[in-house]
Simulated scan of single mutants.
Amino acid sequence: MPPDAARRSDRSRRAILVAALELVEALGYSRLTVEAVAARAGVGKQTIYRWWPSKGPLLFDALVEFGPAAVDHAVGGGLDADLRRELRAVVEELAERRFDQVCRLLVHEERTDLVMLLLVPRRMALEERLHRAQRSGEVRADVDVSAAVELLVGPVYQRWFLRAAPLTGGFADLVVDLVLRALGR
């Protein structure tokens, strides 16, 4: 029976994506090369260029497929605990070198559309949790949930982007405390 080309292609694709993430974490974006990814993945660089025009789109696909840990939207500790858990998860994602490197590259290349795709799952989880809080009376009914989520994640992303101060779980907790006061609890 001849080898299955589709399975071989999928194996090569996965190896390339994993190699790209490992190397961007080890070397950083500026030192990452397609040649190094090809060597680590055990493929020719022409294979990489057949699927991706440059290392930016390659890294984006790698992050989408193998990026930050699966989003756990467990609830059960009350609104305060749920928001702290979600915002701390954002901080942890941003602290991952591979996530940091790829997001910074995408921002530099003005691909905010792609950055948003990476950030949407956490944002949606926060919006859903605040909608549940509105329905249960934990948050005022007149609160604009989308704006409240911006109040939660905006300072975290700003601190990450500007590197003005350390991005920590304690900072995430402070933001949650301030936002909960603004929501009228």
Rank of each mutant, 00 (worst) to 15 (best):
G78M: 10
V71S: 02
E127G: 01
G137S: 04
A133S: 10
R98N: 11
L94K: 11
D80Y: 11
L117G: 04
V43N: 01
H108L: 08
R135C: 11
T47M: 05
D80M: 08
V115D: 01
V107D: 02
L118W: 05
L59R: 04
A70E: 15
V115P: 01
R132C: 12
S54M: 09
P57T: 14
E86Y: 02
R111D: 08
L118Q: 12
G77N: 07
G78I: 10
G76L: 13
W51V: 14
L119R: 05
F99D: 10
R104G: 03
A141Y: 14
H131V: 06
D72V: 13
E92W: 05
G67H: 09
E92V: 09
R50E: 14
L59V: 05
A125W: 01
W52V: 13
S136A: 15
G42P: 06
E109N: 11
K45Y: 06
E128F: 02
V64H: 10
E93C: 13
R111Q: 09
V139C: 06
V115A: 01
R140G: 08
L118V: 08
A133N: 06
G67Q: 07
L59S: 07
E92K: 06
E127A: 09
F60L: 15
Q46M: 11
E65V: 03
A69G: 14
L79S: 12
R140D: 09
D82S: 05
V115I: 05
R98K: 14
L119I: 03
F66L: 14
R122E: 00
G42A: 05
P68C: 08
R97Y: 04
L126C: 06
L79R: 09
R97N: 09
D100G: 10
A81M: 04
Y49D: 05
A74G: 15
L63K: 03
R104C: 02
W52D: 08
K45T: 06
M116A: 07
V43K: 02
V75M: 11
A125K: 01
A89N: 07
A70I: 04
A125L: 00
E109I: 08
R84C: 00
C103W: 08
A95V: 01
A133M: 10
V64M: 13
A69R: 14
D72F: 05
L58A: 09
P121Q: 04
S136F: 11
E93Y: 14
R132N: 07
G137C: 07
V107Q: 02
V64T: 12
I48E: 00
R40D: 06
A41Y: 00
P68N: 11
L94F: 09
L94N: 09
L130K: 00
Q101C: 10
D113V: 00
P68I: 07
R129M: 04
A89E: 02
G67V: 01
R97W: 05
A69K: 10
E96I: 04
I48V: 15
L94Y: 09
A70L: 11
F60W: 13
E96W: 06
R132L: 15
A41E: 00
F66E: 08
G56E: 15
V43C: 09
D113Y: 01
V120A: 10
F66A: 10
P68F: 09
W52S: 12
E65R: 13
G56A: 15
I48R: 01
M116F: 04
F99N: 13
V102P: 03
